[in-house]
Design a protein around this nucleic acid. Structure first.
Length: 418
DNA sequence: TCTGGGGTCCTAGGACCC
DNA sequence: TCTGGGGTCCTAGGACCC
C-alpha cells in the first residue's frame, strides 16, 4: 500500500500558525513581486478567488471580503515543510518527498497495522508538532493514493482526514467519482482530448485500450492507466541532484538598456552557481532568455533565448556570469521594454570528476574564492559579497505584505507576554 | 501601474555511423 | 530504369507536476 500525505492549503496555513487571529478569515498568498495568487485558504476559495488570479484585478474583492493578503515567505514555508517531513519520516522508512507540501510513503510490511488509525495518528502528530493540517490518502498504488487523498480532503468530517481504499468496489466507486481533469498526470491538453472522446471520469480512462493510450498519451499515460487500474507501476523515486537549475524573475519595472538587464542576468547566474555548489555539481551549458511583457499586447513584443556550451565545466560565479553576459549580448536587442529574464544551467557533472581539456581549463583558484564567498553570505546574508557585474543596488522584490520569518530568523521569533 | 517560479520526462525527427 | 538496412545520439518542443 502507498500513502500520500498532503498539507492543506500549505502556504496559507503557514501564515496562520503564528497568527491564530487569522483563523476563519479568507487569506491568500501572492507570488514574487506580489503578482498573482498562489495559495488560498478555504475561506478565500469560497469567495471565488481562482488560483493564479492577478492580484491587481481582485483588489476590490479582497477589500470587500476582508481578505488577508501576504507576500510569499519561502523561508517560512521551507522551514515548516522540513518540520512536517521530519515528523512524517518517523512513520515509514520509505518516504519520497514529492514537493514542498506532500510526500509519498511505501507501506510495505504494514499488513497487521490498522492503516486508517495509523494515518490519523500521523495527522495528529504533525498538527501537534507544527500546527499544520494534513490529509492522508492510502491505497494500493501511488496514483490511487492521490485519489484517496483527494477524497480525504474533500470530505474531512466523514474521513477524519484520512481515507483508505482497498477493496475493488471502493476503488471503482472512487474512480467513477473523480473527473478526468482532476486525475494526477492528466493536464489540460489531455483532459480536453479525452473529454471529446466521452471520457469523463478516471474510471472511463482505465477502460480505454492500452494501444490508444500509448499512442495518444505516450508511455507516461499508459503507466498512469495501469497504476490507476490497481497494477503498481509508479514507484517511489529517489531524490537525486537536480538536472537543471534556474533563476528567473519578472522585473518590477521595464528595462530598456543592456546594462540594466545585464546586472540582473549576472545576479541570476550567480544564484545558479550558488545552487550548483550546494549540490556539488559543475555545469557545462548555460541558457539565457529575455522577454517583453506578454500582457501588454499593444507593445512591440520580443523574446529570445540562447544556450551556449562552456569550454569547461564549472560552478564559479565569475565564469558563469561572464558567459551569461556573452549569451545575453547575442540575444539582446535595443528598442524593447524588457519585463523578464532568466538563466538556466544544465549538463551537470559531479564536482569531483573532471574532464580536462588541452587548452582551456578552469581556474582552480575560484574554488577557494567561492567557498569564502558562500561562507560570508551565509553568515552575513544573501548577496552581501557579490560580483561587481551584479551592480551596486541590492535587488529586492516587491513584497509589501511579507510576514516575519518566525522560525528562521532570531529577530523574528515571537515574544510571549505574560 | 500591477499578471510567478522552478522542475521532470518523453517523442519525433535530423544528423550521423557502418 | 534501377538507388539498403540497421543502428545511435542529440535536441527542440510539448506534455505534465507543484
Amino acid at each position: 500500500m502507498y500513502a500520500l500525505i498532503d498539507c492543506n492549503n500549505f502556504y496559507a496555513s503557514c501564515e496562520r500558525i503564528f497568527r491564530p487571529d487569522l483563523i476563519g478569515l479568507p487569506l491568500v498568498v501572492l507570488s514574487n513581486n506580489d503578482g498573482c495568487v498562489i495559495a488560498r485558504s478555504n475561506e478565500a476559495k469560497a469567495c471565488g478567488i481562482p488560483m493564479g488570479a492577478a492580484a491587481f484585478q481582485y483588489r476590490e474583492l479582497f477589500k470587500q471580503h476582508n481578505v488577508q493578503v501576504f507576500s510569499a515567505n519561502f523561508a517560512l514555508y521551507g522551514d515548516m515543510s522540513n518540520r512536517v517531513m521530519q515528523t512524517l519520516s518517523n512513520y515509514c522508512i520509505d518516504q519520497e518527498i514529492y514537493s514542498i507540501d506532500e510526500c509519498f510513503m511505501k507501506l510495505d510490511g504494514y499488513d497487521f497495522v490498522d492503516l486508517k488509525e495509523y494515518g490519523i495518528r500521523m495527522r495528529e502528530e504533525v498538527f501537534r508538532n507544527t500546527g499544520i493540517q494534513v490529509s492522508v490518502g492510502i491505497a494500493p498504488t501511488k496514483s490511487l493514493a492521490k485519489v484517496a487523498n483527494r477524497i480525504a480532503k474533500k470530505y474531512p468530517k466523514e474521513s477524519n482526514g484520512c481515507h483508505v481504499m482497498r477493496s475493488a468496489a471502493q476503488i471503482e466507486k472512487a474512480l467513477k467519482w473523480l473527473e478526468i481533469e482532476d486525475v494526477w498526470g492528466i493536464g489540460r491538453q489531455h483532459a480536453k482530448r479525452l473529454f471529446q472522446l466521452g471520457v469523463d471520469t478516471a474510471y472511463d480512462f482505465t477502460k480505454l485500450s492500452d494501444q490508444w493510450v500509448q499512442k495518444n498519451l505516450s508511455i507516461v499515460g499508459l503507466r498512469l492507466k495501469r497504476d490507476l487500474s490497481g497494477i503498481p507501476t509508479l514507484d517511489l523515486e529517489e531524490v537525486e541532484n537536480k538536472k537543471n537549475i534556474a533563476s528567473t524573475r519578472s522585473f518590477d519595472v521595464n528595462y530598456t538598456t543592456f546594462d540594466q538587464v545585464q546586472e540582473r542576468v549576472s545576479t541570476f547566474s550567480s544564484s545558479c552557481s550558488e545552487k550548483l555548489r550546494k549540490q556539488k555539481s559543475f555545469c557545462s551549458s548555460i541558457t539565457v532568455f529575455v522577454m517583453t511583457n506578454r500582457f501588454r499586447v499593444e507593445q512591440v513584443q520580443y523574446q529570445n533565448s540562447i544556450t551556449i556550451d562552456l569550454p569547461f565545466a564549472t560552478n564559479s560565479a565569475i565564469e558563469l556570469s561572464k558567459y551569461a553576459t556573452v549569451a545575453l549580448r547575442r540575444i539582446f536587442k535595443e528598442g524593447y521594454a524588457y519585463k523578464k529574464a532568466g538563466v538556466i544551467v544544465s549538463n551537470f557533472t559531479p564536482d569531483d570528476v573532471e574532464q580536462m581539456t588541452l587548452f582551456d581549463n578552469r581556474d582552480k583558484r575560484h574554488d577557494a574564492l567561492m567557498k569564502a564567498l558562500d561562507l560570508m553570505n551565509k553568515q552575513y546574508g544573501q548577496h552581501t559579497v557579490r560580483l561587481a557585474s551584479q551592480g551596486k543596488k541590492k535587488w529586492t522584490m516587491r513584497q509589501e505584505m511579507l510576514s516575519p520569518c518566525y522560525t528562521t530568523k532570531l529577530k523574528d521569533i515571537i515574544t510571549i507576554k505574560i
